[in-house]
């Protein structure tokens, strides 16, 4: 049985799950990290977005084998105490309605801010257009990302 080693939220993890298994199911079922959600299962909605070495990948179509030896961050790994600027901004802007897509939204937003600390509205639209929200919270998501840029400056 093939073993795969990866770093999840800063912790070394080893699993013997089939390397072709989508990362999403390894995170949820093997490691118990249920913050990452199943949406469409075909990389069309963004609910399963996690950070793989700085990229906002769709874990539902990413085989475990791609993550071998790499760093994965899930929504649980943004911070343990809710202090990450994106977490604080999401709260202060009261972004979620049903909330199901929000872990994916937050992970894409955090990747955007890591690469572009001062995004314009157009930058945000470009970066977030792969994350769908059925409740239509897009305006609050955009406000929260702008808020997060301010919080990151003053943290």
């Amino acid at each position: 049985m093939q073993r795969t080693e990866l770093i999840v939220n800063g912790e070394r993890k080893v699993t013997d799950v089939d390397p072709s298994t989508p990362l999403l199911w390894v995170l949820r079922d093997t490691f118990g990290l249920t913050g990452t959600k199943f949406g469409c299962g075909i990389a069309q909605c963004g609910a399963c977005t996690v950070n793989l070495e700085g990229d906002a990948i769709r874990s539902c179509v990413t085989p475990l084998s791609r993550t071998a030896g790499k760093r994965v961050t899930t929504v649980e790994g943004l911070s343990k105490d809710g202090s990450h600027p994106v977490q604080r901004a999401w709260l202060s802007e009261q972004v979620p309605q049903c909330g199901y897509c929000q872990p994916g939204q937050m992970m894409s937003a955090s990747v955007l801010l890591a690469r572009n600390p001062r995004p314009t509205d157009a930058d945000i639209d470009d970066a977030m257009s792969g994350n769908i929200c059925r409740c239509g919270t897009y305006q609050r998501i955009r406000s929260a990302i702008h808020r997060a840029t301010q919080l990151a400056k003053h943290k």
Binding site: D55, I57, S108, V111, N116, D126, A127, G130
Partner: peptide, 18 residues
Amino acid sequence: SPAMRCTNCHQSTNSDLA
């Protein structure tokens, strides 16, 4: 673009899923 890289979704092989 940032947070929307090609390989966020496109893997190194085709998917079996429609």
